[in-house]
Design a protein around this nucleic acid. Structure first.
Length: 660
DNA sequence: AGCACGCCGACT
DNA sequence: GTCGGCGTGCTC
């Protein structure tokens, strides 16, 4: 008998010979096996009667290969549940990465450390003593009871379109209270670290010490401690960010993904999995319900609900009434008004803040109310020459340079190049330079100039408002830095330039704008107002937003996506290619391979050259796009293989990319 | 020529 | 992860 073993290394699996007296259920067990001149822990992913060879292995090599097969040193307990291996295989296939890279995304090495150090009691024994696992069949049935209002306890995905974050939390609390006695193992995902405590506190009231939380900024010691708790069975209710979805629970009955639309669920490095999508796949493989919820669901999830892949839960439905949700119905919380402000009406003022917004700000000031300014640009402004119209650009990458007034510098946001603020124009030698547009710094200046008041500038998303003792009425920040604050504290929000979203070369820009504004609506008092400053006041998207018209927006957006053939009507895989400079041949070779692989039904978009952070390399990027996910993945892995053979070429892929 | 260092690929 | 091979570049 032979076993395929995956190690937590960025490589494929390896074959080992098995001894004759083996414990049952080999698949998923942790093993120790020789590799190179060391021995490593890995995990069995397959068991075979005979050796399998890849095709094209010449005869004379077979004996050599057989002689290389070594024996496993020792065999241990399972890692996670019986479906762990299936999920690892799926991750590896879907995200076009070696099996070992998928295993590396798990807390596997931590688990090994813990097992080695603490000699944990066998968890099977531990669970047998636990009250909630005494009767598996009953558990199974009770979980289906839990969700009887929703459906039977087999795999089933639900999409809750929640009217507010408060509703979302109440819904989750109620479900968990009702199911508490029957829940053995659950994972609750939130997009941001800040939101963990909120959910964890709700869960602690229900589950007490069984609750633990997991996130990437926890520090190794704490992380090991938590994972130890999970492995020993002490913790089985996990609240955390993205990586929590891969925690090795022996048994799991429920997964919930809060704010499922958040792009924070998508990884930026390593195996770039989407925590939400992995949650769905894990739920499917484990045979348990998965709840996705959001105050503004993603287009993909909405589409899945529309196609009956997910069951859509709307708070108004009878379904919800049956689950004892004791909170106000959808309509009873008034949302703030949204007003579109045509900046052409203010053309002559030369200001970036409209008269109406200034007036509102003054009112806030006299009424001791807070107001939030969303400014999606860094620094003070761009610099332009009044004589010839030249806009100062980076000499490296032609990106417009950003002027930082306080520092007296121009800086390139792409490559980081800096220079002193110029005295005159590079092109016409004119001396009449002028700021163009407005970033956070300039809006800050305008506020103190016109409103005679200080503002707080939020520059990190971890920064909290409560740090300040004295009342400061105005807060300025870039959209993605202002994250969930616990209360509706603002009387008004002003989006300085919503048009920036429409200029973004990202097919998801509309969706992003919609989601952000719905987000901010939660921070505004019900009698408050959100102002959208624009030069396209008739824009359809803005009008859907103004009316909180979700179904209109989704219908419109899906029609656009269908028209341009982008997700959810196709799948995308993004390729980053890093070429060592001075190897001209390789760039041609790269192009040759790419054009050679053109096939019917798969589009290749690009490549384009990006500004590389390292000067010694060229960074190219292209997308492949198809309606046929399987064929797209096949092409992607064959491209990856072909590029990897080339010398001085490094490739990374991003399946279902969200940022471009 | 001889050695130090760093990158890359193999490991069953 | 760890090791060894090999190419680069610096020194004696």
């Amino acid at each position: 008998m032979y076993a395929e073993v995956i190690f937590p290394l960025k490589v494929k699996s390896f074959t080992y010979r098995l001894q004759s007296d083996m414990p049952p259920d080999l698949i998923g067990r942790i093993v120790r096996a020789p590799l190179g001149n060391q021995s490593l822990y890995g995990i069995i992913c397959d068991v075979r009667e005979t050796l399998a060879f890849e095709e094209n292995v010449p005869f004379e090599n077979i004996n050599h290969r057989i002689s290389k097969v070594k024996q496993i040193i020792s065999i241990h307990e399972h890692f996670g549940s019986s479906t762990t291996i299936s999920l690892i295989k799926w991750l590896s296939e879907y995200y076009i990465s070696p099996l070992g890279a998928a295993l590396s995304s798990y807390p596997f090495k931590e688990a090994i450390k813990i097992i080695e150090k603490f000699r944990l009691p066998n968890r099977d024994a531990f669970l047998a003593n636990n009250y909630y696992s005494n009767n598996l069949h009953n558990v199974e049935r009770d979980i289906s009871l839990l969700f009887n209002a929703i459906q039977d306890a087999n795999y089933k995905a639900f999409l809750l379109h929640s009217p507010s974050s408060f509703y979302q939390k109440s819904f989750l609390r109620n479900i968990c209270e009702k199911a508490a006695a029957n829940l053995s193992g659950a994972i609750f995902l939130v997009p941001e670290i800040m939101q963990i405590d909120d959910i964890a506190n709700i869960m602690k009231k229900i589950f007490g010490e069984r609750v633990c939380s997991i996130h990437s900024k926890q520090g190794n010691k704490k992380r090991i401690e938590v994972i130890k708790g999970i492995l020993s069975g002490q913790h089985d209710i996990i609240v955390g960010t993205r990586s929590a979805i891969l925690m090795p629970l022996k048994k799991i009955s429920f997964i919930a993904v809060l704010n499922e639309h958040s792009i924070s669920y998508k990884g930026e490095e390593g195996l770039r999995y989407n925590g939400r999508d992995v949650a769905i796949m894990r739920g499917f493989l484990e045979g348990i319900p998965v709840l996705l919820s959001s105050i503004c669901p993603s287009i993909e999830s909405f589409n899945n609900a529309k196609n009956r892949k997910y069951h859509l839960l709307k708070p108004s439905q009878r379904l919800i009434d049956m689950s004892d949700i004791k909170i106000k119905p959808f309509s009873s919380r008034r949302r703030p008004d949204i007003e579109i402000i045509n900046m052409y009406d203010d053309e002559n003022s030369g200001l970036s803040i409209s008269k109406k917004v200034l007036l509102t700000a003054k009112k806030c000031l006299s009424a001791n109310e807070n107001m939030l300014f969303i400014v999606n640009k860094k620094g003070y402004s761009l610099i332009t020459c009044r004589d010839c119209g030249y806009i100062f650009k980076c000499s490296n990458c032609k990106t417009p340079l950003i002027f930082y007034k306080k520092e007296g510098f121009l800086r390139c946001s792409k490559c980081g190049q800096e220079k002193r603020a110029p005295e005159g124009c590079n092109i016409c030698r004119g001396m009449d330079l002028m700021p163009l547009g407005a970033g956070t710094e300039r809006i800050n200046e305008d506020i103190s100039k016109f409103l005679n008041n200080e503002a707080i500038l939020i520059e990190k998303n971890t920064q909290k408002l409560a740090d300040n003792d004295s009342f400061i009425p105005f807060i300025i920040g870039r959209g993605h830095h202002i994250r969930r604050l616990s209360e509706s504290i603002f009387k008004a929000v002003a989006f300085i330039d919503v048009d920036l979203y429409f200029l973004e070369p990202n097919y998801r820009a509309n969706e992003k704008l919609f989601q952000e504004i719905i987000h901010f609506a939660e921070l505004v008092k019900p009698d408050g107002c959100i102002y959208l400053q624009t030069r396209n006041p008739k824009n359809r998207i803005l009008n859907f937003i103004k009316n909180y018209d979700f179904s209109g927006f989704y219908k419109n957006e899906l029609a656009i996506r269908k028209e341009i053939g982008f997700p959810p009507f196709s799948r995308l895989i993004l390729f980053n290619i890093f070429l060592k400079k001075e190897i001209d041949g390789d760039r041609n070779e790269f192009q040759r391979i790419l054009s050679q692989r053109q096939e019917e039904g798969i589009e290749i978009l690009g490549p384009i050259e990006l500004q590389s952070l390292e000067k010694s390399q060229i960074h190219l990027r292209f997308l492949i796009k198809s309606k046929d996910r399987k064929r797209l993945n096949q092409l992607a892995s064959s491209l990856k293989e072909a590029f990897n053979i080339l010398k001085g070429v490094r490739v990374t892929t991003d399946v279902d990319p969200l940022r471009f």
